[in-house]
Nucleic acid binder design. Structure first.
Lengths: 348, 348
DNA sequence: ATTAGCACTCGTAGCAAGTGAGTGCTAACA
DNA sequence: TGTTAGCACTCACTTGCTACGAGTGCTAAT
């Protein structure tokens, strides 16, 4: 029993129809709707074979067939054809590009919204995270009567400000001077590289201001941690409720629960970071509540090791072809916008 | 026909029972469960009166009664007794206080999570926003070979950094010098207060660096806009699905839709900012998809005009008493943590 | 004023019959 | 030998019916 052309045509018909209608597909439907030039009886025989091979299955004894995870896998790997973006979709993407986006988190938010609006699936996206952060600038500024401002910038332009409260604030000139020393000492180093020798030298050079080192190291820690923390944005969770496969509230609820746990999403996105495009179908997912879903992820790159990932969750009966084309378009889009953005303006 | 003591007892019984069970309450249930010393027939007569007065209603002809929005209103305004927080709840709040929280958004996130975990209702919370922002500090720092860093801090310590790309970066000393001029010129002013005279003087003083003024004004605009933008955090949306009143998926969906639109939430929170505690029951809500819900909001204050709001959405059959006590506890908590936080460290 | 009793209402659970979409099998056909 | 028509069978789903029970409103007795 081999997977001949006709079987593949039939499988394709079943998958297309099922993606569209969410109803089990019978032999007669295929005979009528898809002109394969064979009768429903023949289709029945072929379907019986396809079922034996594991590509389709029956939800109950006398019903039509639905694709199995294996069937979708075959479809995704070999049958699915690349779809071009429709005019409407193209316009949507364009409108996003042309708008004046000047902040990463805003870009992420808008991208997630656009994708979930286009596809009707739940979308989540992680901000680009690069290699282990090195210090590019560390500066002190006067702030007010009781505190000074510490600005820390990493090599990849992630930055964070910290207010350091002091009993007595030195005069402006002294603040800048101390800041200058600090910058000389820290510039170019990762936090781990700063050893006792450096610290001792600093303590000496700072003199009466060496007490500053404690809050400064704390601020550095916080900054570096934040620089390496993956931020996730999500949109379109409500769409889940529109799919008949989640009309069972308890199923919907457990998926919602999972989506509310950012850790799970971060892990999911991080794991797929090495692939440009990854499709996990039903049981291929490791998270229990997603065993009935498919997850498609696409990775965008800012540089070779600065990457982020977009993910989409939907029922296994998902319009894979559409999602893949939208994701591809969006990756290009996001890479372009990000390249502009990081060249001009980046803050965290 | 007056609202005598007995009627009130019966109404209270109906509301308590309905909040607990979500089932219409019959006269016999009340007679058995709540020892009011009267028979079910008497209760029936009183219920008939209560219905006529509009405090309760029947979902269909021969069923028990459920409270109407008016009934809940009476309950909330006059009958509900303040509940003390349970030990468990107290512990939850304490655990939040004691943890080392150093960022506003993290505090918001955690607070929302805690409240939704304690109450099982969906929680959203807005970050504290103060009066129209004045500039406290505006400074320039060297960043790298092609850009300098502009740091803007408002009076209430909201801050934002901007990268300004230049063809040729001046030497460090000149950057600080120009920054000094800028700071002198802008300090203490709101963006609107800066008029042509000031700008002309600046152009003169900056000399060859007057081209900087364009990106600086753009950065100022972005910063001030962001300073005044209300950030909303949300948690526990999934809980909605657990309530029988949302077992109708389409209802749940429309509520989800609303909750995904931040604008609506912001408006809602902003509108209730002037009240310490506000309860909107069912039809009292202006948003259509919330006409079946109750929304309770509590406002926390950092200073007289720096405020934020916590909101809770649930079915009208909500445990008002619990929610109010949790919110009260949380407002105190959040005010304490925020006071510490803004004294020591604040960034945006 | 209160209550016991009773007829009445109405949503819901359970059951039986009918319907239709779909299958598998067999025998005839090209 | 592959294809197809025909047929019996399966099974979810709908419809209509009945029985049940929780609950009400009304009336008459206390």
């Amino acid at each position: 029993m081999s997977l001949n052309d006709r079987k593949i045509q039939i499988l394709q018909a079943i998958i297309n129809d099922y993606i569209e209608t969410a109803e089990p597909v019978g032999s007669r439907t295929i005979a009528k709707k898809y002109n394969l030039g064979i009768s429903s009886a023949t289709i029945r025989n072929e379907m019986s074979d396809l079922e034996e091979m594991g590509f389709i299955m029956q939800p109950h004894a006398s019903s039509g067939r639905i694709p199995s995870d294996l069937g979708y896998r075959l479809y995704v790997d070999h049958l699915m054809q690349k779809r071009e973006l429709s005019n409407e979709e193209e316009r949507y993407l364009q409108s996003l590009i042309s708008r004046d986006i000047n902040q990463i988190d805003y870009l992420m938010e808008e991208t997630a919204k656009a994708i979930s609006a286009l596809t009707n699936y739940t979308t989540f996206i992680s901000e680009p995270v690069g290699q282990r952060a090195k210090i590019k600038q560390i500066r002190l500024l006067p702030l007010d009567m009781v505190s000074i401002l510490l600005v820390i910038v990493t090599e990849d332009n992630f930055m964070k400000n910290h207010v350091i409260k002091l009993g007595v604030v030195p005069e402006e000139e002294r603040i800048f001077e101390v800041g200058f020393y600090l910058n000389r000492a820290f510039q170019g180093y990762a936090l781990e590289q700063i050893d006792q020798t450096v610290i001792r030298r600093l303590q000496y050079e700072l003199g009466e201001y060496k007490g500053l080192l404690i809050p400064i190291f704390k601020a550095l820690e916080i900054t570096m941690e934040a620089a390496e923390k993956v931020q996730v944005h999500m949109s379109g969770t409500k769409n889940i409720l529109a799919f008949p496969e989640f009309s069972d509230i308890s199923k919907a609820k457990s998926l919602f629960q999972t989506l509310e746990e950012k850790d799970v999403l971060v892990t999911l996105l991080e794991e797929s970071k090495s692939n440009d495009l990854q499709i996990l179908i039903g049981s291929e997912n490791t998270v229990q509540s997603m065993k009935d879903c498919s997850v498609i992820t696409a990775t965008y790159k800012l540089s070779d090791d600065t990457r982020g990932t977009i993910g989409i969750v939907g029922p296994t009966r998902m319009d894979y072809s559409q999602v893949v084309s939208v994701l591809n378009g969006m990756v290009q889009n996001i890479e372009r916008v990000l390249r502009n953005l990081t060249d001009n303006n980046k803050d965290g």
